[in-house]
Nucleic acid binder design. Structure first.
Lengths: 346, 346
DNA sequence: TTGTATGCGTTATCAA
DNA sequence: TTGATAACGCATACAA
């Protein structure tokens, strides 16, 4: 490839045609229907393309085609590895469909989310996958009204007005707390918040349900609310937990996600508590850092990559299949038991 | 906004013009030079735009403009939070310049990297920021030959043929080991690899230099090579470390990044070693999970966001400033001391 | 098998 | 202040 920057502009099909001594249409044929062009000309054109360092201009293709060849995923929290695993699943599926994937990060801020969406609509992406700050926000319904295929990721669609993929969070809560009861715990903390997050509510709901089914007194499942699902908040929940009078102090904690659990674990270790002997901990999501913790964390596993792949499949179906019907895909979470809940008590 | 999907296609300036009863040029003026348009017509046009739900078509703009309004960052390892923090710094700068940012992940694979670059060239991005699998790979020089501004991130440009941003890794190695010597350690392990990674070599080089300067015997700085910079490899290094005869066994380890350090920490705790009393640990990068570890990790801090911001600044300068000269920006790493090296020995 | 002509949506130039 | 027109690069329908 020789650098032929004709006037700073990248070479176009026209330039290739001129260099190869053929018409523009023939060059286009070489690119899109190589079989209809004779071997000799094809080779000549290909040589010219290599010579000039020709690269298709995607915006021109896209303008012509009327649609881009890209999907987008707007994730909620780039600092949480969970979302990157989901993104990887999406990318796998996008790749398979020969589509690009734009990954955006709203970082929990509605304004950033809206801005990203604006851009994506301008880009005419084929579909938008999103884990929204607020599933009921106006700009989401706008996407749908625009006729852009879109799928809620890791959130349920209450209305059924669009596709969604998520795990059964109530079940996830049940599994976690049943495991703790099984391990002999009779006083348990639920760490998580804010309650405006549907998943927090549902995981707590599942926890309470199974707690009641086992005939445990309601007041022995203590909710330690947090302001966010972060390591920091997990630490601060640990402090509040330590501050409880010892007869009220839980012997185990179920955290609404792994970041909280890691923070809680850190506080416990710093405070000289043994995990799991003095305090057992269960997280949620099963991010890689859960297994990597000093005391490997028991966690409720979400099939992160599969969530992503399925979401991509659904959005592609909506984009290409005229008979598409919205679907709420639900996955079953699974407990992954590790050292942080290792022993049976007594 | 009423859904007016004329034939499935999104409304164009032409549609807006028709709806507002003006010419297409006037609509364009409303969009790009609102001041030249009378208030009355402007309002009429704006109403029509709202009515139809008009959104500019970015590919058409881009085709017209000849260049996209986007930057791209191709990162090396999406599973390592370090790179996301860098990406966030880049995004901040891109945002300020009203550019979109495409974030890609090569995941350490050269073929994926090349594929991403192909796509980005087709998209005609304004510039490419990249932490490459191999800084000497052919597709990198191709980018430059194409005249696309590009910057190496977290890697040095040996040749000086392009911009780069990185920290002084030799210095980073010095700082880390000096800290350990300071804490009274006389046998130290360097955990990291493969040596094909320049940073591993340089961090080790710095470690050795300061080790020698303090008059310590060469054989007491033990290199435990790893096959990658991952938590798993850190764990396996821990096993090898534990297998050393006790008179040879280091009392401290300097890991070439935080993932290795977290893995090593986990192994140590599992094996019943006290950190830092039996084994002190220093990491590199200072990712958030380092501070969040059960035993908070001492780490050599890279100014991650600033690396990103600077890289973006450089690529934008190359893209817009005709007098641009390539620049190798070097940042100074800083030690962040935490509990994992907490005590002075003896 | 190859060439010619047209339009995608936008912006800018020029004329009215 | 507004309108008509051309051009960006590509893909395709159709003509040769």
């Amino acid at each position: 490839m020789t650098p032929h920057p004709r006037n700073g502009r990248a070479p176009s099909v026209k330039d290739v045609a001129a260099a190869a001594g053929v018409s523009l249409g023939t060059v286009s044929n070489v690119l899109n229907r190589p079989s209809v062009v004779s071997a000799a000309t094809r080779e000549r054109v290909e040589r010219a393309m290599a010579e000039l360092g020709f690269v298709r201009n995607e915006s021109a293709r896209q303008l012509r085609a009327g649609t881009s060849r890209a999907l987008a995923y707007v994730m909620l929290d780039g600092g949480n590895p969970f979302f990157h695993d989901v993104a990887e699943g999406i990318e796998t599926a996008a790749e398979a469909a020969d589509l690009s994937l734009f990954v955006c990060n709203s970082n929990g801020r509605s304004d950033r989310e809206a801005k990203h969406i604006d851009r994506l609509v301008q880009q005419r992406v084929q579909g938008i996958l999103i884990t929204p700050v607020d599933p009921d926000a106006g700009h989401l319904t706008e996407i749908a009204q625009r006729g852009i295929p879109f799928v809620l990721v890791d959130r349920f669609s209450r209305s059924g007005g669009h596709c969604s993929v998520a795990v059964d969070d109530v079940l996830g809560g049940r599994i976690a707390v049943e495991h703790l009861i099984d391990r002999g715990h009779r006083r348990v903390a639920f760490v998580g918040g804010p309650s405006s997050i549907g998943q927090v509510r549902e995981r707590l709901q599942g926890a309470r349900a199974v707690w009641a089914e086992f005939g445990m007194p309601e007041e022995d499942l203590i909710h330690l609310p947090t302001e966010a699902m972060t390591v920091n908040e997990g630490r601060s929940a640990g402090e509040r937990l330590a501050g409880l009078p010892s007869r009220r102090r839980p012997t185990a904690a179920f955290c609404a996600n792994d970041l909280l659990a890691l923070g809680l674990l850190q506080h416990a270790v710093t405070a000289g508590l043994r995990v799991p002997d003095d305090l057992a901990i269960v997280g949620f999501d099963d991010i890689d850092f859960a297994a990597a913790a000093a005391v490997p964390l028991t966690s409720v596993r979400q099939p992160r990559q599969e969530l992503g792949r399925t979401a991509a499949r659904l959005v592609l179906d909506e984009a290409t299949n005229p008979d598409h019907v919205h679907e709420q895909a639900t996955f079953v979470p699974a407990l992954v038991a590790r050292a942080s809940t290792g022993t049976v008590r007594r």
